[in-house]
Design a protein around this nucleic acid. Structure first.
Lengths: 210, 210
DNA sequence: CTGTGTGAAGGCTTTCACAGCC
DNA sequence: GGCTGTGAAAGCCTTCACACAG
């Protein structure tokens, strides 16, 4: 029998995060159980989808009643915890990078950003929202020493590939990339691109032409 | 014969944005034509995928040669232009909202953010990166008067649904939502959720367990 | 009778293989 | 020979329908 984590479909894993957040939001109501219908609505998916997703984690819902709220929460956390405990660094503390540090959304969800790195002497040595900004030269040694495997890349497009190279050499295995270009990385390194302008452009396309 | 725009698959439209950006990045080389292989690599997709996507726009590549760079760029712009010309408002100029205004990534890509709205009297009346910050009370009248149909929602989670309701009533048809909850909206309104913590969590999940 | 678990069907995307044109 | 355009095949994901447990 093989371990659970290997067999979870990519999109299911993504939705588990949605379920966990939906559950937390519903927690205010304090109900001991939650139906797939209710939670699915809170997460923005169909109830059949949710049941199929949760079935991958083993069947622990109760027919006729729903899922035990606390047990479900624990189970989801157990699956997702691993990634939350990962230390993270942020490379490029310019406009967007500084914004993400100040934003607080990561810390609130349990992620710890150990440090930010930038080339600008004006901000190196300062702290942004409590997170130290260090010189870019220290990036690789820091990442290696702290065994950091995840990074948020918010460097300008022109510098992004070079910074990514440093991250990879130092041992980073996963990059959340905000720079508008496709990073070249060796196998074994995962890159997830976020391009807000494209999201907006895409959204606009599907407006009724009217 | 039906119009091109109706029949483009959702994911294809998304990739067209990638192709356009890839093309712009390759433009430096100044080549008159580009092969599906080259452009696909710049966009981070497989060449067969790119060819299938472009085929939806009508066949205007040249066999044995590739695509005319300028013509392809024009064609992509023609398809995506509509959304770029859409005026946009930003609701919630707190940490993340202010960051997005300062970021400049939208303006660089051709989007015009007409105004931001917030409840905080300390920032209402000021400008962020040249964009006026107006009082939340003026949101609905402004949206209606300017016929705004797209909005970026960066209000706190607790206020997001209420702000979304105002946007919808005022005529907004598409929302790029950064608040960590599922917005309830009537049919005809498209919501695209962006949750950076989930992206990071998801990325972390797929790290090799080691 | 309510609500989960799940095989089967359906739909959407991607990849393959190769025909066709320059 | 090189590279696009495209039917067919494969893969992945979602939805349906309903058996089944509490």
């Amino acid at each position: 029998m093989k371990s659970t984590k290997e067999s979870l479909p990519r999109k299911t894993v993504y939705r588990l995060s949605l379920y966990l957040r939906g559950l937390d939001r519903l927690a205010g109501a304090g109900a001991a159980t939650v139906s797939s219908e209710t939670l699915a609505e809170a997460a923005g998916v169909k109830s059949t989808q949710l049941r199929k997703d949760l079935a991958f984690l083993g069947h622990f819902g109760t027919r006729g009643l729903g899922y035990n709220t606390a047990a479900l929460r624990e189970r989801l956390l157990a699956v997702l915890r691993r990634s939350r405990l990962q230390p993270v660094v942020l490379a490029g503390a310019g406009h967007l990078g500084a914004a993400l540090l100040g934003y607080g959304g990561f810390a609130k969800e349990g992620f710890e950003i150990l440090a930010a790195f930038d080339v600008d002497p004006a901000i190196v040595g300062t702290r942004l929202n409590g997170i130290p900004v260090l010189a870019m030269e220290n990036l690789a040694p820091f990442v290696t020493a702290e065994r950091v495997r995840m990074a948020i890349l918010t460097a300008p497009a022109a510098a992004a590939q070079e910074v990514a190279d440093r991250l990879v050499v130092a041992g980073v295995k996963a990059i959340l990339n905000f720079a508008p270009l496709i990073l070249q990385t060796p196998p074994g390194v995962t890159v997830k691109n976020v391009n807000l302008a494209i999201e907006l452009e895409n959204l606009g396309y599907f407006l009724d032409a009217e």
